Amino acid sequence: MKIETLTNLISGELLNRPYISEVLFYTSDVEEVNRGSCFFAKKTADIAEAIKRGAYAIIVDKEVPILDKEIAWIKVDDFKKAIFNIFKYENLKNKIFLGDKITFEIIKNMNQDKRVVVLNEDEDLLRAINLSEKYIVTKETYFKEIFSNIEELKPKKLNLQKEGLFRMKFESFELHLPFVYAENFEKAYNFFDKNELKYTLEFEIERFKPVFVDALLREVKYGESSKVVIKGLKNDEIFFKELNYIVENTKHAKCVFINETTKELLNSPFNFAVCVDFDFEPKVIEEKGLFND
């Protein structure tokens, strides 16, 4: 991209008259800088190294010394907005896949294809800018207001079977995913299968994650205890569906719901402790040494 186009696109201020005229690559990670890069200098201390590695443009959000007058120095008000403006410009014609938050998490953890970019943070936007062949996935619904080339992910009907509360079977493979997310998995699988992308079935997500614990709330191996803490649930638009699934499948068990105000219930008898907006960490009890009291 030409320096003049870049400066206008990100509403920047060109601080000098550079010798170079364009940039070829975008990054905010100094380790990725190479000849022709545009470097977003979120850490001022990284600028000298970026220049040494061959940066053609330095983007800053504050006044800094101009160390090399031959390359471009551009000042912006907001890194995030500047990066998104470049992403938008470069992807107006590229298809973007939209999924709900669970499908998004499943795709992120299934993915093994370098062409797939799951948009979580600024560096993901930059990676999408740099790739020529790419499959961009987002969970942000406001993208529909910006891009005309949005494709919402659709499920492909699969023969899935429930395996207890926390797992399901796909063909001969046991997925570490509760059956409540069956349709989400079908959407994720369809995305990879239809586009012939690399993926793994050996994955987990942090939501609805079981932690088997002993009487002292220490973690034990999967299935080795009758006490399970379910982590990662949020009181959001998905929770009611998850709650119905839990109630329907734990009718004959003692089930307690844990948040910041009810965390003492973890010390009471239970079979399932469902953490909602609460970050449970198993206890770690150090074994006493030979000379400890």
Score class of each variant (00 low, 15 high):
149 N>V: 13
86 I>R: 07
117 V>I: 15
157 K>H: 12
64 V>A: 03
147 F>L: 07
148 S>Y: 13
173 F>P: 00
59 I>P: 00
58 I>S: 04
74 I>R: 04
108 K>Q: 06
101 K>L: 08
101 K>D: 13
98 L>M: 10
107 I>W: 03
176 H>F: 09
92 L>Q: 15
71 I>A: 05
161 Q>F: 11
177 L>T: 02
66 I>V: 13
133 E>W: 01
175 L>F: 01
62 K>F: 08
133 E>D: 12
164 G>H: 03
137 V>A: 07
75 K>L: 02
79 F>E: 00
160 L>W: 02
73 W>A: 03
139 K>W: 09
82 A>I: 01
146 I>L: 14
78 D>Q: 00
107 I>V: 14
149 N>F: 09
96 I>E: 05
165 L>A: 01
120 N>W: 05
139 K>L: 11
99 G>Y: 02
67 L>T: 03
85 N>R: 15
132 S>F: 12
64 V>N: 03
117 V>G: 02
101 K>N: 14
139 K>H: 10
77 D>K: 15
137 V>C: 08
85 N>G: 06
173 F>E: 12
93 K>H: 12
94 N>K: 14
121 E>C: 11
145 E>G: 10
102 I>P: 00
64 V>Y: 05
150 I>R: 10
102 I>S: 02
64 V>Q: 01
120 N>A: 07
167 R>H: 12
67 L>I: 10
167 R>D: 10
105 E>Y: 04
141 T>I: 14
158 L>F: 12
79 F>V: 01
142 Y>R: 14
69 K>G: 05
134 K>R: 13
151 E>K: 15
139 K>Q: 13
138 T>W: 02
98 L>K: 11
